[in-house]
Design a binder for these strands. Sequence first.
DNA 1: CGAACTCTTGACTAGTGTCAAATTTTGTGG
DNA 2: CCACAAAATTTGACACTAGTCAAGAGTTCG
Lengths: 246, 246
Amino acid sequence: VRVIDISDVHDKMISSLARCHRLDGDDREAIRTLPVELRHYHASSHLVREGQTPHRCAFLVEGFAYRQKLTLSGHRSLCSLQLPGDFVDLQNIYLSESDHDVQALTEVTAVDLPVAVLRALAGSRPNVGTAMWIQGLSEASIFREWLLNIGRRDARSRMAHLLCEFSIRLQAAGVPASESHDLPMTQEQLGDALGLTAVHVNRVLKSLEENGVIIRGKRQVRVDDWDGLRRIADFNPRYLHLRQEG
Amino acid sequence: VRVIDISDVHDKMISSLARCHRLDGDDREAIRTLPVELRHYHASSHLVREGQTPHRCAFLVEGFAYRQKLTLSGHRSLCSLQLPGDFVDLQNIYLSESDHDVQALTEVTAVDLPVAVLRALAGSRPNVGTAMWIQGLSEASIFREWLLNIGRRDARSRMAHLLCEFSIRLQAAGVPASESHDLPMTQEQLGDALGLTAVHVNRVLKSLEENGVIIRGKRQVRVDDWDGLRRIADFNPRYLHLRQEG
DNA sequence: CGAACTCTTGACTAGTGTCAAATTTTGTGG
DNA sequence: CCACAAAATTTGACACTAGTCAAGAGTTCG
């Protein structure tokens, strides 16, 4: 566990939102007035729970999280991954009831912001509101791409696509290459992200490793041959909307 | 082709947004000042095209449309259906490049609104902006549900779920029961909405009809036994966020 | 009226799922 | 820090859902 500087957290929020929409000095100043109360979540604990009224929105400082939905019979589907620098609850901020869960994938450090405070900020600083709106739209675009991925690509391509996305998004979020770019998911979680069973995920990973495009560790996967993976994945980063300017 | 009254169109926009968020008299007045220029689209013509910068946002007055994405190899996945009363391009309104297409499913009558005008309206009338934001969030919730549908339900349930959603949304949009509640899609389009092949869609429809839960016409499907269908579908309308109050 | 889509069906195939058991890794309480 | 229990991985054998191919019939639309 690392010591985290509160001013760094504000900087991180500002750069996360500024990547979505241009912010002026007053906008940045307003963000700096947000109350920062760091909170720790253990792996697999809930940040959001289906059916609840969202009162707080987490800003991810360290660690990963994922959105998921469940079938009545208990089958699970992940909808997206949340990386450091993401506002986790922009999907619910204006809805009266959450339609899905968000759970910590790893140990997570996050700031819990009252939804009312974020709404007020969006109202008083329109640029910030627009930035939050855009961040939510970008995530909706990820949902659509995952729909295409699960609906129309075969198992190998799906897996390759997921890895490409993770890799590019980490880079875009400014996680230094020195830090690990391994995807720390179990094969069951990967299966739920791809509409596959854990057993088949295992077979696919083995095959991708034999082709030399990935390297596997325990409970994690790393990209080895990016171009090869990208070709298998049919990956086009357009849907991530990384270079946004209002 | 029916004659459409412009004031009716404004009413339709107002009620569409008011279903998402409370609007006061001035908000409604502001919406009434929007320029209304009715435009007709033939079935399968594009309202939005991937890669383009969105300059205009359509408001659907009559007819249906769908969002779709394509794989490099040309495979298609639908992401959602658009019904009368939907603002089609809320997903792109603040993005610089569209990541998907929107095409007319049937003959469509729509109002084309300049994106700049909508952005200005969102800025000057915060309630209206919030309503648009919420409409976009609700659609994102549909993407997530479709992800669960395709990823974790079998073909019969997927089809049943799609029909349940269509039925409930039509009702919520206030389409009178007198008008047809048939889903006017080809089996190939249904397949692309469900991650199936057209051939398998045919088999599934046959089976559902034999169970007496649907009735098929040419190029259309109608719900016959709603409770039966709902049971097959594992359908819970929560994700549609129909009763929203800011 | 004909060409081009759709739909339907059957026969066959292939990609994933299911089940089960051995092995390795991880996490926890003493 | 160890020992054990629980969780995750790996593999093989087999089953089954959904895909592919093909051909005939029905529809739609210019």
